[in-house]
Every structure is written in structure tokens, then in C-alpha cells.
Design a protein around this nucleic acid. Structure first.
Lengths: 230, 230
DNA sequence: CAATTGCATCGTACATCGTACGAGTCAATC
DNA sequence: GATTGACTCGTACGATGTACGATGCAATTG
């Protein structure tokens, strides 16, 4: 069972005059770089969540031995950090941010942030426990700047930024984790049947039935911004 | 190494006429119940975080064999669920909630929620991925009720509840995970030295220096409530 | 009293994980 | 040709979750 992935490793053992095409790509298997590791790690995480990322699996997908990874990467934690960073990059919407409409600017940036994290659902739960990289700081700077222009006092800027951060993080983490796997949906639905007896307000608000996550996020954000900038 | 915890298990092998006092307690080692397992699990989680909870460690602390746990508990996931539930119990503040002041009521309940989770920092990151138990639903019901009394329209109740949920979750998860381990604080502080060049607003707002987490939580909550109930 | 039944305990075993260690390969350099 | 240094990888170790089946024990039943 230790010989499973050993066949992919035949650079130029027999044919010396034909150094290329070792695997199947046109320019051969790229030689295992930090970038390639991170890219495949993100693929794995997207496909199977944080539990699906395994050094062995990673190596398999890369066509390499497990321990080869450790030349490019400190440990598994490191892989998580790198994957998270690579996913959080913010390519600023090229056009009219400088429209002066601070509110549209904020809504757009936070919406993009959330959308980006939801595209890689594992990232939301990972983010809060990592150091703030330049990508995140850039977003926070943009946020504070817009709020400041909107009239938020310097003494409140701190609170305002953190409030929005909290809101976005809470919404995104919740959304990323409440994705019911379909085969549980029936059971969940059933449990809600006679809920109104004990939780009338919850039932009346359709809290657990409405699944317009995007709309709820957007409207709640509006409320929060209303509070921050009356 | 398999004989480490086998000495604690000597009920009445030699002395039949003295069936009690098998360990050290006055009425002997309690006989391994779901409750005891959960209690020790919470202890372990509090002491060492999610990584510190191990079925073997759990068994050791209980003075039992590892596999005995599985009689009372389905699997490790189950232990997490139970631990989380046991920590989220909300003993309603006995006195004047019915003061009619919805705002005080909401602030108090959410503050208590956050405080409770921070007392067990692992709970915050665990919560969003678990099903909503009765404890949580009870809190949400109370929340919706207060908001409704405050004048929030039924059509907005949904959004309002989720907004507050998002805010509290985001704040608590962030707080629970940003507890810098002290030996990293110096390095972090240093990194912030020449931060003002690239992130002037962040520096001006003292976003990363102010560590009055409770105050920020409270004031941000006020802003959000302002937006929800103008 | 003996036999049976069900609750409860636990030792052993296995697959899987992260990774320490050291032996290998190869190209560039001396 | 020898040396060096970047890079690869097999083997091995300890830790983990848990399947399986043996065991003990109390209450119930004959």
C-alpha cells in the first residue's frame, strides 16, 4: 500500500534524450512549488472542507511523496495559513469606487468579502484565528476611510469598524456552516412542525424557514449602517 | 503503556465485605454517566481547547477505559455537541426582566450570552456548525419577542434577529480567538509600529491597539439597535 | 437455587493522521 | 573527480477515533 503513488515519479530514468513529458501535461509535471501546493490545498479544501485536507492526500494529488511537501512548507498549520491568504486577496473593483457614495462603496466591499469567503466556505471559520494579513488590513482601511468620510467621529471609528467586521464574520460563518446537507433537510423541516407552541415569535418571523441569505445579509447591513450613520 | 490507568479499576476484587470506597470519594467513584462525561469534557475543553479533548484523556480523567465511554456516547462529535449544549444553558436572570425596557432586556441577554461563551472560548467556534438546540432557540425567542415589543415590524423581525445573532457571533468568535498568547504580543506590537504609512485610518482609529473588548461590544450593539429601532 | 437476560466495562486491534529522521538523487561548482 | 546544496522520499513512531468481542455483574425468571 506504500507503492500507490510511486509510479508518478519517473522523471528521466530511461530516456535521457527526451527530458520532457514525464506525466501528461505539455510541459511535464511542474516541480512542486509552494504555489502549486497551496493551489491544490485550496482545491482540496473547497471539495471536502477542513477535514479533507491531509498531507498524504495533498501529496497524492501533487504526484509526490508526502515528506517532500515539508521542504516547501513548515507544517500543516502553514498550509492552512497560506491557503487562507491566497483566497483572501482583494482585487479592487477597477472602476468607480471613488464615486463618493460611501455607502455603496461599503456595501459593495463587504458583499464582495462575504461572497469571496463563501466561495471557499472553510475560510470563514479559519479567518478569525489567524493574524491579520495585508489583504485584510487593506479592506479594513478602506472601510474606515469610507466611514470617516460618511461622518463617523474618530472616537467611534474603532467601534464602527469592529461592528461591521463582527457582522460580516458572523453572517458568513453562520451561512457557511448552516448549509444543510439535503438529507437532513427533511428531518429539520419536520422538527419545525410544532415549533410554534414553544417559540411563537420565531415561527411568526419565519426565522428558520426563510433561506434568502443574501437578502437578509444585505438588509441587516443596511440596518447596521443606519445605526452607525444616522 | 496499556497498564497506565488499570489500577483505578478495582471495585471489590479482594474484599467482598467492603463493597464501597473503591477510589477516594466518600461514596466511591461515581459510575460513569453521560453527565459526568460531559462535565469532564467541558473541563478538558476549558483547559486546553478543542485540541485537548481526546477520548483517551477523557477516559483517563474519569478513571475508566476508553471504550466504556462509547456506551454512553455515540462518538466524539456527540461529546462536542453535549458539551456545547451544557455550556449554553440559559438560566434566566431571576428578577426584573419584565421591566418592560426591551432594550435593557436585549442588551443584558446578549451580553450574558457572549460572556457565557467567552467563559468557554471553544464554544464560540463550535456553535455555528451545530443544530439549534432548545437553549439557543429559547434565547432567540426571547430576542424576537423583545424586538417585536419594541416596534420592529413582523416583516423585519427575521432580519433583525439574524443581525443580532451575526453581531454577537462575530464579536464572540473574534474575541475568543484573538487572545494573543502574550509571547506574540511584542512581535504584534512591533509590526504595528510603521503601520500608519499604509493604513492611516486604521492607525487613527487605534483599531488594533484598543483592547476594551467589552466596551466595544456594548457600544457597537447600541449602534445596531439604533438602526433596528429608530 | 440455577439459568438467562441486559446493562455496563474494557483490552485489543486497526486504519489514519502529522511529522522526525536520514538516506537518496541530481545539477552546479570547484 | 569531489564537493556542495537544493530537493525528494521511504520508513518509522506516536497519537488518534473507534469496531469488535470478551467479560463482569444485577435483576429477573424458571
Amino acid at each position: 500500500m506504500a507503492a500507490k503513488r510511486s509510479d508518478a515519479r519517473s522523471k528521466q530514468s530511461q530516456r535521457i534524450d527526451e527530458p520532457l513529458q514525464p506525466e501528461q501535461g505539455p510541459h511535464g509535471e511542474p516541480p512542486l512549488s509552494r504555489e502549486r501546493i497551496v493551489a491544490i490545498a485550496v482545491e482540496l479544501l473547497d471539495a471536502e472542507g477542513t477535514g479533507g485536507l491531509t498531507m498524504r492526500r495533498l501529496a497524492d494529488r501533487l504526484g509526490s511523496g508526502v515528506m517532500s511537501l515539508y521542504w516547501h512548507v513548515d507544517n500543516k498549520e502553514d498550509v492552512f495559513d497560506l491557503a487562507l491568504d491566497s483566497v483572501l486577496e482583494y482585487r479592487e473593483p477597477p472602476q468607480a469606487i471613488a464615486s463618493g457614495d460611501w455607502r455603496e462603496e461599503v456595501v459593495q466591499m463587504l458583499g464582495d468579502w462575504r461572497a469571496g469567503m463563501l466561495r471557499h466556505p472553510w475560510s470563514a471559520s479559519l479567518l478569525p484565528r489567524r493574524a491579520l494579513g495585508p489583504n485584510i488590513l487593506g479592506r479594513l482601511e478602506l472601510l474606515g476611510n469610507a466611514l470617516s468620510r460618511a461622518g463617523v467621529a474618530d472616537a467611534d471609528l474603532n467601534v464602527a469598524i469592529w461592528s461591521l467586521w463582527n457582522y460580516v464574520m458572523g453572517a458568513t460563518i453562520t451561512r457557511a456552516n448552516f448549509d444543510v446537507p439535503d438529507h437532513e433537510r427533511a428531518a429539520a423541516q419536520q422538527r419545525l412542525e410544532h415549533l410554534g407552541e414553544r417559540y411563537p415569535t420565531i415561527e411568526r418571523s419565519r426565522l428558520l424557514l426563510d433561506d434568502d441569505w443574501d437578502g437578509v445579509f444585505r438588509r441587516g447591513l443596511d440596518f447596521l449602517l443606519d445605526g452607525l450613520v444616522p
